[in-house]
Design a binder for these strands. Structure first.
Length: 487
DNA sequence: TCTGGGGTCCTTAGCCCT
DNA sequence: TCTGAGGGCTAAGGACCC
């Protein structure tokens, strides 16, 4: 009954770090760590060279720097990653209409639905060809897993990493899975893993033997049943091409805990505006407003409020978030604030309910009424700043030189030098051409001049306000054809 | 220098209604 | 009129994923 291994899972290898290495020849073969560079940053991706030092994703940056002091630490450049991802997804969609992206660097493809594979041999051929096409189009490597189900295809691509392909033949699933640790299965994280370990269940084989009833007793109905099926290699989830978003949210972690209630309120309003910008950009409105607060001791609480109808009005979201904040005790300090909207409506619509609500509630809270911070209210645009893709508002992420960055009430007050020259970003110099920022501080910025297709380049240092130096867009990773190239 | 950001899904509990 | 069961909705928290 089990289908041919025609579900493909693609996973790009150390995606962000590999993209940076492809863009910056001088970093190839060296440990590269991409992530938040502020005092509370974590690693998003570490190159395989950096992993040898024990650096891995989700690790605090400080710890990574101790383990790998000579690594290159770069701020993520989502414009670049998104453009590479778009190119890869194009290649996948050429194989099948059923492509399910999971993130910028991962996707499922139903090869049978595309008519390009029907058995092991044809599936393997498609997978190998795809890997070659990805390398030719982007210069990056991806690992491919092929199996009869999504879960198994994902396990296979994980086993194939880096830069490999693995196909799980029908009938061999259980024997293959049995010795693997329970954490191999999607849905088993640290908490469930520990829970199972205490019950003496450490491998997928143990899980299968434990039986459904026992797992349901331990983990609850939904999780228990799902896990037991997976342990048996059973998974009939379909590849779904279109997924509707269920919520939109933004959050900021501050370099220094916030104590001032006025500042906290100001930040919540700013986040509300950003959230609405994203909501509108996605063509949605939403009914439930969620405030998230992480306190000084890392305890996290959420407060939510459901409106009578969906809204995409920044004033309405701001006010709801403000009301929710009123019910939260922030003494002791706040390290993170977030604002989200869920209960999304299919498309933006004029929302009479919300407008009525706004009209009923006098705009007293607007211009500084209840201590609203200056400059926050009424920011008319609420439009997302394009540039660095949602990151521009991240406070103090570039704050490396000890300046009291996060203590400033307004983001524009951050040191302009650090704001303009984040490590790893692209620049262009009038005389020396394209390069990237290797570091900045004390009024200087150091730039390495090289291109993805050039040999490693030279380093030069400039004053941060050098008029000949400008931020620029990322270059493509593969050299574009020159006008004279075509015969 | 302990612990990001943007999501999804599940569970539990309380309330309201039938 | 009282009581209980069950469903739907809301709120809060937690686990997990990339």
């Amino acid at each position: 009954m089990r289908a041919a291994p025609t579900i493909l899972h693609l996973d790009m290898d150390a995606f962000y770090a590999s993209a940076e290495q492809a863009a910056k020849p001088s970093l190839r073969g060296k440990p590269v760590i991409v992530g938040g560079l502020g005092p509370r940053g974590v690693v998003a991706t570490a190159s395989y060279e950096a992993r040898r030092f024990g650096v891995h994703s989700a690790m605090p940056m400080g710890q990574a720097r101790r383990l790998c002091p000579n690594g290159a630490y770069l701020f993520p450049r989502f414009t670049l990653y998104r453009s590479v991802s778009d190119r890869v997804m194009e290649l996948l969609r050429a194989l099948s209409p059923l492509v399910e992206p999971l993130s910028l660097d991962e996707a499922f493809v139903d090869l049978e639905a595309g008519g390009v594979a029907f058995d092991s041999a044809s599936a393997r051929a498609v997978g190998e060809r795809l890997r070659a096409e990805i390398r030719a189009a982007t210069g990056l490597s991806g690992s491919v897993g092929l199996a009869g189900s999504k879960m198994l295809a994902k396990v296979a691509s994980e086993e194939a990493k880096p830069d490999g392909l693995m196909l799980i033949e029908p009938g061999t699933e259980r024997a293959l899975l049995a010795p693997m640790p329970v954490r191999t299965l999607p849905g088993v994280g640290p908490a469930t893993g520990e829970h199972l370990r205490r019950a003496g269940i450490t491998t997928v084989g143990d899980l299968a033997e434990a039986g459904e009833d026992e797992l349901v007793r331990m983990l609850g109905r939904s999780h228990g049943v799902a896990l037991h099926r997976m342990a048996l290699g059973l998974d009939d989830r379909a590849v779904v091409a279109e997924r509707d978003a269920k919520s939109v949210s933004v959050e900021d972690t501050f370099d220094v805990d916030l104590h001032d209630r006025v500042r906290i309120r100001f930040e919540v309003q700013r986040l509300a505006d950003r959230c609405v910008g994203r909501l509108r950009a996605s063509g949605h409105s939403g009914r439930t407003i969620v405030l998230k607060v992480r306190r000084y001791d890392f305890s996290t609480l959420t407060r939510s409020e459901t409106l009578r109808g969906p809204t995409d009005d920044p004033a309405v979201v701001r006010e709801a978030a403000g009301r929710l904040l009123d019910g939260v005790d922030t003494t002791g300090g706040v390290r993170l604030l977030g604002v989200g909207v869920s209960g999304l409506a299919d498309y933006t619509q004029e929302d009479l309910f919300a407008q009525t609500l706004a009209a009923e509630q006098p705009p007293a809270a607007e211009p500084g009424g209840s201590g609203g911070a200056p400059g926050a209210s009424g920011s008319p645009g609420a439009s997302e700043v394009p540039g660095f893709l949602g990151l521009p508002g991240v406070p103090g992420i570039f704050g490396v030189s000890g300046a009291p960055v996060a203590a400033e009430p307004v983001q524009e007050a951050e040191s302009p030098a650090e704001r303009r020259w984040p490590a790893g970003s692209d620049v262009r110099h009038a005389l020396y051409g394209p390069g990237w920022v290797q570091g900045s501080g004390i009024g200087r910025v150091t730039v390495r001049f090289e291109q993805p297709w050039s040999p490693p380049g030279r380093v030069r240092t400039f004053l941060v306000d050098d008029p000949e130096l400008e931020p620029s867009d990322p270059l493509p990773l593969i050299e574009p054809p020159q006008p004279g190239d075509v015969a």
